[in-house]
Design a protein around this nucleic acid. Sequence first.
DNA 1: ATACAAAGTTGTAATGATTACAATATAATA
DNA 2: TATTATATTGTAATCATTACAACTTTGTAT
Lengths: 140, 140
Amino acid sequence: MKFTPDDFAKELKSKNIRLSHQRLKVLEYLSEHKCHPTVDQIYTNLLKEIPTLSKTTVYSTLGALADAGMVKAINIEDNEIRYDITVEDHGHFKCESCGAIYDFPADMAHLESEVLSGFKIRDKNVYFKGTCPMCLANKN
Amino acid sequence: MKFTPDDFAKELKSKNIRLSHQRLKVLEYLSEHKCHPTVDQIYTNLLKEIPTLSKTTVYSTLGALADAGMVKAINIEDNEIRYDITVEDHGHFKCESCGAIYDFPADMAHLESEVLSGFKIRDKNVYFKGTCPMCLANKN
DNA sequence: ATACAAAGTTGTAATGATTACAATATAATA
DNA sequence: TATTATATTGTAATCATTACAACTTTGTAT
């Protein structure tokens, strides 16, 4: 709940992205659902508010927002893209039992090896997988 | 060329994975091509040696080898799985210009946050994207 | 306010990687 | 060598994502 629609509108304008109802709603959804939703989850939920919404729009909107650096695509699974409105560097942990994705602080700067000197780094991702404490407890 | 077919055979046996010509060839291919090939690349190239090879076999073989920890799946792109025979922790950098994937040392232990205490971590991935030195040079 | 051009949205159809499945073949074991 | 479990194969299905053309909306200048 950090942002109001007005904040989003200003940020879109500052990045030269046109304002549209759909884009605002996608941003609003992501800011209210920081559980790293899939494209389909975003689409299905917004459909209740925007009955004419097309999934193509959701894809293109998320692509445009990601290009502008306003959201971040998460490819922790190979069969679906998820999106995160938190663009500051952090790691993602996916519980293979319940499917939940957890954020954790990750010192990305520390990862930069001298092997990458001369490389232009545009995007950094840290993905861990395993079992979360809740699922570990349920097994016993 | 670190491994001979015999080495692979022993490792498969020790992990209770049945020996097959296809599995040995997939392992051999990965050990000779450390460029992180896609499933399709592995399939297409092995087809020359094994004309009856099925892509389903390549998928199931890679899945079994990955489950056994003998190879590692790389999901740096959302539209294709790549495989790496180097299973020791390291980071991957994908050049968005030429598509090449580079390895780099990554201190994964340093990434473990206290936020993840109580989590069972089974798999760690570090994916960077950007432009490699060669492509940066070619732009000028 | 109105009109225009550029860009966004929509719906449908195509793409392409991955998986499901049933028949056949092979590997491990007795 | 026979038996049984498992692997391989080929085809068809699945499903996320993209391509595309028609229509709508936005931003801007008149």
